[in-house]
Design a protein around this nucleic acid. Structure first.
Lengths: 193, 193, 193, 193
DNA sequence: TATGAATGAGGTTTCATTCAT
DNA sequence: GATGAATGAAACCTCATTCAT
């Protein structure tokens, strides 16, 4: 997830992510990050300007990782429908492979702690833009019913996110068929098939 | 929103809510709350055991307020479909009347800062349980297709929440028809009509 | 020296002054000031915005105290010569009564650590302006030889300051006659007598 | 000013001098010195034992440079009066050619940060001792009125220093005649002419 | 020589909370 | 009830110095 960073940076980012998810930002002190990551405070500040920058960099790194991950599904060869399923399946897969990253993005994408420029870069560098493009194309080609593409993507994402959140909160179990059914539902609600 | 509290408590809760949304919990110190609310720190501690309790009480108060608000829609006389629309319309209306409350619940419903007992009480005291019951009944009566009621509610809520989040983030405008269309989509995806 | 401040502020200012003189600003940490003054760090920050403000306030307080002290001599009844001697005698007396204050002003009047606005206020609120006025008047009345008043005051002050510095450094002893002779020398170098 | 040092040492000393004058010792970190001077921290420690040693070496170098500079005036052929003028003129010239060096010595000659042995060496290696000797000789030869030679030198220096400080602070302009007049005043106040 | 990553003690400051009034 | 001065642990961050390369 943090391959482009050096060892110390990776340790810091990984540790910070885990601590924020487990204990919340407030309880995630620099002293603890240093201790858990094995990187001294001084050296942390050699690589990151401030605590805020660690968190923003974390956000950036995860969004970027998620972006390429989902893009694999979105660029799958085949029909629009195939790419649609490819994309959303990867989104759900992400939440199972990297639940901390998933939760982190959920918690901080609306937080004032993440700088606006980082959010903007995330929007463009993540999978959001390609997914929007897929919907827009499908609507132009009349494969999907005409509608606001961004709004529709947003709603489909919301439905899947809350499906996962409910699962992570222990409200119910999730099966592969359940997941497939959920994505299928999304497809049916917009496709002209 | 905080009618059941006295003046000082109301001022504290209202101030805390606004500050958390605008500046984030970390930057919301007791000294600032005291200054902004006009209630001295000493007196705040007369009414609240700790900072954590303020935030938990806030969560509790908002969930409870939201609960009765949405319940008005859910208990509307008429068919299951009427109550379905009544409920979700109120949910969306809430986000427009009280966006800070909406954002606060969104940000903190998965945060470890809110105690489990408060979350549990919220689940039962809010609109979640009645909404789940509506879906369950509808499925039993074959008005809705059989499925996991909780999961379905969760997904419909997610779809609407992200519709609103996208709007609040400035991705698109929201019209009354758009909102109605979104709820209608939810209905169609589950109803046997 | 710090009568206009409350007890805690007085303790902090007094402690800071002594520590800076004895150990130098770098070695004067807030923790040490707190410990020596008996005022907790938290409370120090209740009364002073920052460490820098303590030092600037200290500068301000001493200059102001010195100002009224020297003014007593400068406003002595009698001739211009009497007031001349009255003023400079008080300046020297200050350095013996409050050597720390004297040294502090010497060390910091040219330091970038003291803000420009504080220095400006000090110039106007201290004894410098009245002394300049005395010289200017004396020159206008032909009691002193015509010259740049400010420059002449500055040089007389320098001569006395270095006389004292040499003494404090242990180069020589200072007697009352020695001091009187030094001031007399200043007087003779400018007077028309 | 630092000819006897190698390139790296010169860069460090020069940078340190400028930074201390502009920003004050506290704000002059080794990291900044390294960055500004283009010498890495590791290499700085190759040439200097510690930060304290840099500053003490700086003090030493400037005093030594100033010493030879003023000595040129003091050893001028001619009468005692010629050497008197020669010496003080060089002192004033120094403050115009190297104002940072001048300010540095002023600020640190009474600071506990400079070690006593360095100050002692400075006293002997600088121009102070020769100037004292000139005064002492002149008094013995009855060219000057009898008095404490060290005290008199100290006061003359103080008068000139404050003349310059007032100028550097922007209180007034300094002309060549003004400077000459000031030194002449010093001469008249002690000579038997 | 020369570099700059790494260290960690210690610096300044904040902040939840208490307590005398 | 109400105030806000007082506390001190702990937060974030800096910095002189070391050390592997």
């Amino acid at each position: 997830m943090f391959e482009s960073y050096n060892k110390a940076q990776q340790a810091v980012l990984r540790t910070t992510l885990n601590m924020i998810i487990k204990k919340e930002l407030q309880a995630t002190s620099m002293a603890l990050i240093a201790k858990e990551s094995g990187v001294s405070t001084g050296n942390i500040y050699h690589y990151f300007k401030s605590k805020e920058e660690i968190v923003n960099e974390l956000y950036n790194a995860i969004v970027s990782y998620n972006g390429s991950f989902v893009l694999q599904g979105l660029s799958r060869p085949g029909t629009v429908r195939d790419r649609f399923f490819g994309g959303w399946e990867k989104v759900v897969e992400l939440s199972r492979l990297h639940p901390e990253g998933f939760q982190f993005i959920e918690q901080y994408s609306f937080s004032p702690y993440i700088r606006e420029d980082v959010k903007l870069k995330a929007y463009n560098g993540g999978w959001c833009a390609p997914m929007n493009a897929l919907y827009q194309d499908a609507m132009t080609q009349r494969i999907m019913k005409p509608s606001d593409a961004k709004l529709t993507v947003q709603m489909h994402y919301g439905a899947l996110v809350y499906m996962i959140k409910g699962h992570l909160s222990g409200y119910y179990e999730l099966t592969d068929e359940g997941i497939h059914g959920a994505i299928l539902n999304c497809w049916r609600s917009v496709s002209n098939e």
